[in-house]
């Protein structure tokens, strides 16, 4: 009897007691999570209505942001997307609070680290998004300007500008996340230096005809100029 008591009933009693003691914390954690979910849904709905009222989609469509999002594979309209992000942030915050309510030291430490890390993720995402928008804009600016100047490899110029800016923003984002910061900066410097070197080589060796043509235009016989007065 004593053996059964010690081997089976004792631990089971202990387990039930622990579960019983843990139940209020679990219930309150679930309640907090539920409140968070409801609050996220309501907030998302309110913000969607608000953005629709102030015409956010129209404004972002005029600035070209909506187009960029579509090109990036985002099907939602900017108003819906931002509302979803706000809802998501609320869910994350309430999940953290509910986890804390469980009062588990390991979970607490993990959450603390995660919460401290969250701003870095947010900033990194903003850097990547901004980098993508700017890369598209300046890539297109460079492409059009090059075509209008008559540069034969305008497409390459536009793509180089775009990729450089995307690479730069990705480097900055990774540094923000603390992922191999030193290594990435060195990698970027090497890659960028390599790119410049490759372009120099391409221009000097592979593109010697272009170089010759350029130098001829610059210092040699003048090409026949237009005298049309366009206005």
């Amino acid at each position: 009897m004593n053996i059964i008591q010690r081997l089976l009933i004792g631990p089971l009693d202990d387990l039930f007691e622990r579960v019983f003691n843990f139940m209020p914390a679990l219930l309150s954690a679930m309640l907090i999570l539920l409140v968070g979910l409801v609050l996220a849904i309501v907030t998302k709905w309110i913000f969607q209505r608000l953005f629709r009222t102030i015409g956010l989609d129209g404004f972002l469509s005029r600035t070209g942001t909506a187009e960029l999002l579509k090109r990036g594979g985002v099907e939602d309209s900017p108003a819906v997307l931002i509302s979803k992000i706000i809802g998501g942030v609320i869910i994350v915050i309430f999940t953290g609070i509910s986890m804390r309510a469980l009062d588990l030291p390991v979970v607490g430490r993990l959450l603390e680290r995660l919460l401290f890390y969250l701003p870095n993720i947010f900033v990194a995402l903003v850097i990547v998004a901004l980098g993508y928008v700017l890369a598209n804009f300046f890539g297109r600016t460079a492409l059009i300007a090059s075509v209008n100047t008559g540069i034969r490899y305008s497409g390459l110029v536009g793509k180089t500008v775009k990729l450089t800016l995307i690479f730069l923003s990705a480097t900055m984002a990774l540094e923000q996340l603390g992922i191999g910061s030193g290594t990435i900066i060195i990698a970027f410097a090497i890659a960028f230096g390599g790119l410049v070197f490759a372009i120099s080589l391409a221009f000097g060796l592979g593109g010697k005809d272009i170089a010759r043509e350029y130098l001829r235009r610059k210092f040699g016989e003048e090409e026949k100029e237009d005298e049309i007065n366009h206005l």
Binding site: V147, G150, R152, E223, K224, E225, D226, E227
Partner: peptide, 13 residues
């Protein structure tokens, strides 16, 4: 004076 060839090249580009 008009450089027609260059204008056509710009269009093609």
């Amino acid at each position: 004076s008009v450089n027609l060839d260059r204008m056509i090249e710009r269009f093609k580009l």
